[in-house]
């Protein structure tokens, strides 16, 4: 079937499976043009479902950040930001979202501070686990990294 309701941009006829799979996944999650011949509405439903699943995955890794969007708002807010951005895994997706939308909620700020205590992230490449002990102050708390784990102490 061709015509109404079908996508039409770069042709994929004759292209190998590898190229066709890459074209489709880039169109689904990374904002690239949709290859020819797919049912546009069905693909759009898939994009929405992929964003919803991604939002749920990020919310499991970043529960405070997700909660800071307000009750029932996370999937909508995250999806609006993530549409067209290729997934980088839950840790980095949530981190990038937090850098682009700095949380005003104190629990979400603390979550981000704890991540920064344990991981070095330059916003470009995969976060790396920090090594060695260190301590930081964050909002009246002492955050201590010791043997790869975070320990927190409320200061008076």
């Amino acid at each position: 079937m061709t015509g109404l309701g079908r996508s039409g941009s770069s042709p994929a006829v004759g292209a190998g499976l590898a190229r066709r799979q890459e074209e489709l996944v880039r169109a689904l999650v990374a904002g690239a043009a949709m290859p020819v011949g797919f049912d546009v509405a069905a693909v759009a439903a898939t994009q929405t479902a992929l964003l919803r699943k991604r939002a749920e995955d990020v919310a499991r890794t970043w529960p405070r950040l997700a909660a800071s969007a307000g009750p029932g708002q996370w999937t909508r807010v995250f999806s609006a930001w993530a549409a067209g951005r290729a997934p980088q895994g839950s840790l980095r997706d949530g981190w990038d979202f937090a850098l682009a939308n700095p949380p005003r909620d104190t629990a979400a700020q603390r979550e981000l501070a704890l991540r920064e205590l344990l991981w070095a992230y330059d916003g470009e490449t995969a976060p790396r686990a920090r090594r060695g002990p260190t301590a930081r102050l964050h909002a009246g708390e002492l955050l201590l990294r010791w043997r790869g784990r975070a320990h927190t102490f409320r200061l008076r």
Binding site: A18, Q21, V25, R26, K53, G89
Partner: peptide, 14 residues
């Protein structure tokens, strides 16, 4: 199914 291609992760089964 496939879940990635050309270094891009779909995040789910395609």
């Amino acid at each position: 199914a496939y879940v990635r291609a050309g270094g891009v992760e779909a995040g789910h089964l395609l």
